[in-house]
């Protein structure tokens, strides 16, 4: 279980990115975090693994208060939290295998990792994961040779090989086309089910969020303004999160579902 209690972040510039957010995510639940640009979505998930240091509040993962950990304790805690990024954040000049294996760095000594002497059990797991995401035939390609969708699949494998309890996902589809976006979201939600993972998914595409997550949380100017099931996301709720706009079309999009994608591709 991941609990955020009164989580707040003030940047040096004086901007309050998060204003006391309280959120509890039970094990195995995937939540979609929606909200306008600048609402603090990225800051929120980065506060969970302390890539951004929260100024107030606590983050508790299965009983451990992450905000109080020393730097070596934090490294151990980060092993339990996978992260997937908007621009994939693969190391371009490393191979797919090395990129996936970088998810195991927290479990390895420096010299073993420096000379790429990975344990066979980890290599087996990497091959299993790459097969699962459909990339087992290109382990030796360099990351910068892949397309966006393929890169994100490597990113997913890198996060999962950590054997995490939670995955933090920052705009996984923002740089992808609509069809690849759906494939990636489907893959993420299937993998979370298979492995009983909780996940926070920052996402801009409301319709996509409604299709693939079981709970939606709306963030507006650093505060939670919505928390409910995908079908509770009415035009009024969207107005509260994003501001005034004609929301009917966005919601219609969800009802039509898959056919819509088919149309776009033909």
């Amino acid at each position: 279980m991941l609990e955020l209690k009164n989580l707040g972040k003030r940047y040096k510039t004086g901007d309050d990115a998060l204003k006391g957010v309280n959120l509890t995510i039970p094990n195995g639940q995937v939540i979609g975090l929606i909200g306008p640009s600048g609402a603090g979505k990225s800051t929120l998930i980065r506060c969970v693994n302390r890539l951004v240091e929260p100024t107030t509040g606590t983050v508790i993962l299965n009983g451990t208060d992450i905000t109080k950990l020393s730097s070596s304790g934090l490294r151990k805690a980060r092993r339990e939290m996978g992260m997937i990024f908007q621009e994939y954040a693969l190391v371009d000049r490393l191979t797919i295998m090395e990129n996936v294996m970088s998810g195991r760095l927290g479990y390895m000594g420096f010299w073993k990792s420096f000379f790429r002497k990975y344990p066979q059990s980890d290599i087996d797991e990497a091959f299993r994961l790459l097969e699962r995401v459909g990339l087992d035939h290109m382990v030796d390609k360099r990351a910068d040779e892949l397309s966006g969708g393929q890169k994100q699949r490597v990113g997913i494998a890198r996060a999962l090989i950590q054997q995490p309890k939670v995955i933090l996902i920052d705009e996984p589809t923002a740089s992808l086309d609509p069809k690849t976006s759906r494939q990636i979201m489907r893959l993420i939600s299937e993998l979370c089910k298979e492995r009983q993972l909780s996940a926070i998914v920052n996402i801009h595409d409301v319709a996509l969020a409604q299709m693939f997550v079981e709970r939606i949380v709306g963030l507006q100017d650093g505060e939670l303004v919505f928390d409910g099931a995908p079908d509770e996301l009415t035009p009024e709720a969207l107005t509260k999160i994003y501001g005034e706009e004609d929301w009917e079309a966005t919601i219609d999009d969800v009802d039509e579902g898959e056919e819509n994608v088919g149309d776009q591709n033909t």
């Binding site: 490294r75 805690a77 980060r78 970088s102 760095l105 420096f110 990792s113 890198r158």
Partner: peptide
Amino acid sequence: NQVEAIQATGASKLQ
């Protein structure tokens, strides 16, 4: 971003 991604895995500073 690439550095952040490696940090997020729990890697040490040298790693």
